[in-house]
Design a protein around this nucleic acid. Structure first.
Lengths: 144, 144
DNA sequence: ATGCGTCATGTAATAACGTAACACCGATCG
DNA sequence: CGATCGGTGTTACGTTATTACATGACGCAT
């Protein structure tokens, strides 16, 4: 199907499968992190029936740099920008509001460097870094 | 019981209850993080029978600055030092080896400052910070 | 074209992690 | 004395994640 539009492109987009696409759209459409089971519930009408279908899609999306897992929430968000897994920008960090549940993704090159540098000094082969801030966002503070 | 050794001390230790003490000793005796259910299994002979007993103790220990939760592992460790929850040293970070499971706790004041500074600039009221590095430790790299 | 890897999929069952609700006990304090 | 508070114990349940197994689609070498 489809018309072979742009078939050489740039190798960047791994051409998502149906399930991966469904999950990514769901994350994109949400204004807060979703658990795997939240996602599953929203995709029942599209034929998804088992958690594993969602977990498998999430795994690929995260590998592909299109989504993140929030460890302190056991939930998932799509990336703020396409480039947020690039080395240049540093490690992604997340500020999670305990009141409204919204998440703000940002990077700080210096933080990434310091952590990488600690790892280097210890001979620790760094694969992945999780940085999550919990607190109350500006909006909720002034509102509440 | 015991001989009232040092009974005024310094107000630092919140005088642990039996369950809290059992859980803390278990964490101290482990050379890798333990899940709540791991802890429970090790304390069956001491009379603990339900997960909640462990979770309640862990909650207090963490509040008291004697233990940490590792979010990316759903597991718990005791603090590296007594002072590791003090503001001075900065936020605790953890390097978790994917091979041997061991965890190295450290702090980097600069990292804590950068994150706090980002929070300040955003009006985000920071309550708690999670920093976890995943990778392979020196020992496992040279061994393997 | 046949057969063989490989990768995504679908399904069921279960493991692992965490919490709600309730009853009880002992200490402290008015 | 009665009230309250914090820790305890127990049952049941809710949520999150994985294991195991079977199937289907595709590319590709023989």
């Amino acid at each position: 199907m489809a018309h072979s539009h742009d078939h050489h492109h740039h190798e960047a987009r791994p051409d998502l499968t149906r399930n991966q696409d469904l999950v990514l759209r769901t994350l994109n459409g949400a204004d807060a992190p979703l658990s795997a089971y939240d996602i599953l519930d929203r995709l029942r009408d599209d034929g998804l029936r088992a958690p594993l279908q969602v977990y498998r899609a999430l795994e690929r999306l995260i590998e592909a740099g299109l989504a993140h897992r929030l460890e302190s929430l056991n939930a998932f968000v799509c990336c703020a920008d396409a480039g947020c897994h690039e080395k240049a920008s540093g490690t992604a960090a997340f500020a999670i509001c305990s009141k409204c549940g919204r998440v703000d993704e940002f990077t700080d090159a210096e933080v990434g460097e310091r952590l990488a540098s600690w790892a280097g000094a210890q001979g620790f082969a760094l694969e992945r870094t999780t940085i999550e801030l919990r607190g109350v966002c500006q909006g909720c503070r002034t509102a509440g």
